Amino acid sequence: MNILVISNNYPSPAYPARGVFVYNLIQQFCKLGHKVTVISPRKLKMSSFRKGKSYGVENCEVYRPSFFSVSSLQLGSFNTYRIAELGQIKGVQKTVKKNNIQFDVVYTHFMINGIIAVSALKEYGKPIFCAIGESDLVSFTKRYPKKYFDQSISGLNGFIAVSNKLKGQLMSYGIPEKKIFMKPNAVDLQRFYRRDKGDMRKKFGFPNELKLVAFVGRFMPHKGPLRVLEAVEKLDNVGVLFIGSGPQDPKGESVVFKGSVPSFEIPELLSAADVFVLPTQKEGSCNAIAEAIACGLPIVSSNIPEVKDQCHPSFSILVDPMDVNALKVAIHSVISDNQKCLEMSKNALDYAKNFEIGDRALSILNFIEARMKDKTALSK
């Protein structure tokens, strides 16, 4: 197939870490023999000069039209995001026409891009599919007038939801269950696998005498880095690797590492740890959790539906993400019992086979092709 991908969350030389999980999936589409063209609209301020870095081998033709944005502010019944949306719609239209892009199907990532594609490409009459990976759709839909939102999603021919929570929300908007394929996010097991712990600690200069907790994600309140730090500070001989960045700033003697790293270093840092901890309050389908599982780490995370979709009790302990004492108890129960830790690690590695990105890409394309072959399904 000729697949046109619309996603404003896709890496570039200027922003190599942006949308890496989208990039990884789309590259798998290419490896499966499909011709893929990506249109990734970017804000004007992102178009200014910035020293670039390689974000990996690119097997697609990628276009990055610019658009003007004034953020997302609610002014009465009007949300200023609609200005940016119009700019992206026009950018997609101009790019397709100028470059005479030929496509059989449109794959969009995140609902905003699905809505953009419906408006920008309706004249072509091609089926449009949308991957839903937001942590929540309810708050997102408030930026649109209800009639416009309902009309837009009715123009989408199928949805890939990364959690049962999101599948349920789609159905609450009147989307038939047969139009929804639920498949959690996945990882490239050729890149994310367990390295020798001792070797990785030596490489990064981490002490061998400490038990190490790994946190990966934005340093935001809903992700909970400061709750992790508070829990660990109540334990003896435990340090934390804070991998990421954000407005919150975990500080203290327990912080062994803090900062953003290239994507290839994340599995190495995870392999240096004993347990992965993420007390998140909301997710779509958490890539960081999938990556930690692939590296064989026991998981301590949140007792919320979207995390339950990813974690099996054989390698995870799920608690109230706001309960610091429960986090402390869960972490201690893993790191204080070497045999338990080893068993959870083995179970995580076995379970990681369910998160292979090539299999996920193939199953998504099979769903799309099945919908496309059923002409009556595309009209419903």
Score class of each variant (00 low, 15 high):
21 F>S: 04
227 R>D: 02
289 I>Q: 02
334 V>R: 01
150 D>M: 03
303 N>H: 15
215 F>E: 01
200 M>W: 12
368 I>M: 05
341 C>T: 09
28 Q>E: 10
55 Y>G: 01
53 K>E: 09
267 P>I: 01
298 P>I: 07
338 N>C: 03
286 C>K: 11
139 S>Q: 03
285 S>C: 12
169 Q>G: 02
192 F>R: 05
365 L>E: 04
37 T>A: 07
364 I>P: 11
31 K>H: 11
234 K>Y: 00
200 M>C: 14
67 F>Y: 09
269 L>S: 03
317 I>K: 15
190 Q>Y: 07
216 V>K: 03
372 M>W: 04
202 K>L: 14
356 E>M: 10
332 H>S: 15
210 L>Y: 01
83 I>G: 02
171 M>W: 00
357 I>N: 00
182 M>Q: 13
343 E>W: 01
48 S>W: 12
175 I>R: 04
187 V>N: 00
29 F>T: 06
183 K>Q: 15
230 E>D: 09
170 L>E: 03
262 P>H: 04
146 K>M: 03
255 V>P: 12
373 K>R: 04
113 N>S: 08
132 I>L: 09
367 F>T: 06
81 Y>W: 15
95 T>Y: 05
272 A>D: 11
208 N>T: 13
59 N>V: 10
125 G>M: 12
134 E>D: 04
19 G>W: 07
129 F>G: 06
318 L>I: 15
228 V>I: 15
375 K>F: 00
60 C>L: 06
142 K>F: 09
206 F>S: 01
291 E>C: 10
374 D>V: 00
236 D>M: 12
271 S>G: 10
94 K>D: 09
178 K>R: 06
163 S>D: 03
252 G>S: 14
242 F>G: 11
266 I>L: 04
47 S>V: 15
20 V>Q: 10
185 N>W: 13
1 M>D: 11
136 D>M: 02
113 N>D: 05
136 D>S: 02
72 S>P: 13
89 I>A: 01
297 L>V: 04
141 T>L: 09
214 A>T: 08
373 K>P: 00
255 V>F: 04
97 K>R: 10
184 P>W: 12
290 A>F: 14
114 G>C: 07
84 A>C: 09
52 G>A: 01
146 K>S: 05
98 K>R: 12
316 S>H: 09
365 L>H: 07
123 E>W: 10
86 L>E: 03
323 D>Y: 02
159 F>P: 13
314 S>Y: 06
129 F>T: 09
23 Y>V: 02
40 S>F: 00
254 S>E: 12
71 S>N: 14
30 C>D: 04
231 A>K: 06
125 G>A: 08
328 K>P: 15
155 G>C: 04
181 F>V: 07
22 V>C: 05
350 D>P: 00
22 V>G: 02
221 P>H: 09
314 S>D: 11
150 D>K: 00
100 N>V: 08
104 D>W: 04
225 P>V: 13
88 Q>K: 10
1 M>N: 14
372 M>Y: 08
182 M>Y: 07
